[in-house]
Amino acid sequence: MARTRRRIRSGVLAAALLVPLTLTMSASAQSGTGEVRTTAAPALTPALAPEATPACDPTKSVRPSLDESGPAVSAIKRRGVLIAGVDQNSYRWGFRDPATGQLEGFDIDLVHAVAKAILGDPNKVQFKTVPTDQRINAIKSGQVDLIARTMSITCDRLNDVAFSTAYFEAGQQVVVPRSAKATSIGQALKGKTVCVADSSTAQSELKSDQHGAAKITVVGNQLDCLVLMQLGQVDATMTDNALAVGQAAQDPTVQVIGPSLTAEPYGIAMAKGATDLVARVNQVLADYRQNGWQASYDKWLGPYLGPSNGPPPANYLP
């Protein structure tokens, strides 16, 4: 396949990595505080404005606690293993190393940190890969204790599940083949077939504003979009920029188009009633921000996203 051969050219690869770097620099520039985000987002996409109702601040979570006597935490301790819903298709976030078969990535490190804090052993984890559209369902039905899977905290989702404090800032961007020569998202999508993952933020974004897309193809996972794009079955993919750069890193013939349409904090999702677990995880995150976050970022994301300004600050409910 010509495309596979082209992928190996390292010059192209280097060029591909430069683009996402500049893009996410601007994304992380926004990520400093909630104020910057809320003023920036409506300016970019007026359609999103109604979602940012003043009653809901998605970044706010319960105060951290070391208490492990609550029902959710003690259930995990009794079981002796943490059941975590993750992904195996998100390059550098949660992916299966084909050489070893092990799950690795930024999200996976986070899960190990939670397991180490609660159970004393980072490997006392049962990973369950969860499709994008089953994340909320997996929590609600109790199949998993938590979901660490590039999941954006939104006010909609807060109706169904509880989230930890934010551990990353991302936004929706578009991946297109370089040959499309698109320079803006509008240009990249106009009259095209656009691929999104089922129940992703990208899907709801396109629901509220098609951005000129002629047709929307829905698949199980954003990486399936890259397969379809390589096979010429779709023209563009909308997904989180954090994942979009993962696609560009795997295929130098595609590029990420910005700027971000949204500003989304990633959080760890847990059952709505499991306040004790949320508080305990928030404590883990509070420690992780000091010790662990940066190392994990440098290992998994630094090479693709460039240097970071550090983790987003914790924002607690009163």
């Binding site: 396949m1 998100s90 084909p98 890259l226 397969v227 096979l231």
Partner: peptide, 24 residues
């Protein structure tokens, strides 16, 4: 067969895209 080989090539480079190709 081409899809499976693409999956293998990606797999060998350590890319999760390989698994996505295999599923496809």
């Amino acid at each position: 067969a081409g899809l499976v080989e693409t999956a293998r090539a990606n797999d060998r480079q350590g890319l999760p895209l390989g698994a996505a190709y295999l599923r496809y």
